[in-house]
């Protein structure tokens, strides 16, 4: 902590607290490719990547397009003794749709389809103005925070592993074929991984802040040496 003019211990200006262990750090601009780690717990604080915003926007659109295919194309096909059944994702959800289990249908559909699509839209809403160097939309901060909070609840990749288990369980009972929607889902996992690699929350928060949103008078604060 030697750059005395860049932070202020009374207002918190120019400081960052590690969300995992509360250690204080002085905020610094990082070059793309650099990584900032917490001095105490070693967690990554920031890891900006060049051109990340454009990549994230593109990957979000990819997610939505793939998800459309994943919903409406058949997912798995099954046949035994002349009886056949092909199911799309909607079929999977509708299987639970008899009365009591309706809430579970909604939850499952939300986790597999709804949340990944919603997160894509929130991310595009946040990042498009930032990537163009304009001021962010009015609710950008809220949109990005929701997108981050919903992250653990979007479970497309778990669903794919579930499919593998289901395939084996049903293999003795009937013949099963994988439909195009299954491969769309596998592609979604790769897109998701790529998106995670480009994502750096600290950089995006800084961009939202620096682009003029929520000025709060901290510019007026007097620097004080600790």
């Amino acid at each position: 902590m030697d750059a005395r003019d860049t932070f202020d211990l009374t207002t918190g200006r120019g400081l960052i607290a590690c969300p995992r262990c509360d250690a204080l750090h002085v905020e610094e601009e990082l070059q793309p490719g650099e990584t900032a780690r917490c001095i105490r717990c070693g967690g990554v604080l920031a890891k900006p990547r060049g051109g990340a915003f454009i990549q994230l926007i593109a990957l979000s659109f990819t997610t939505v397009v793939l998800m459309m295919g994943a919903i409406f194309f058949p997912f798995l096909e099954i046949s035994r003794m002349g009886f056949g059944n092909a199911t799309s994702l909607f079929g999977v959800a509708m299987a639970f749709a008899d009365g009591v289990l309706l809430p579970l249908v909604l939850a499952v559909m939300a986790m597999i389809v709804g949340l990944p699509v919603l997160r894509s839209f929130l991310l595009v809403y946040t990042l498009v103005p930032l990537a163009q160097g304009r001021a962010p939309y009015r609710h950008a901060a809220r949109a990005f925070r929701w997108s981050e909070e919903l992250r653990p609840w979007s479970m497309a990749e778990i669903f794919v592993i579930g499919t593998a288990v289901a395939l084996v369980k049903v293999a003795g009972l009937a013949t099963v074929h994988l439909g195009p929607a299954f491969w769309a889902f596998c592609a979604l996992i790769l897109v998701n991984l790529a998106s995670r690699g480009f994502m750096c929350q600290t950089t995006i928060w800084d961009a939202i802040e620096d682009a003029g949103l929520r000025t709060d008078g901290r510019e007026m604060a007097q620097g004080r040496t600790p």
């Binding site: 959800a93 299987a95 289901a166 009972l173």
Partner: peptide, 29 residues
């Protein structure tokens, strides 16, 4: 690791949607 426990729920969902072969076999949650 917490979210990965959902696998079992998804398996039941997939099976009950898929295995609806009328007379031959059917699976319900």
């Amino acid at each position: 690791i917490g979210r990965w426990s959902m696998i079992d729920v998804f398996v039941v969902a997939i099976l009950s949607a898929l295995v609806q072969l009328g007379f031959v076999a059917s699976i319900h949650p």
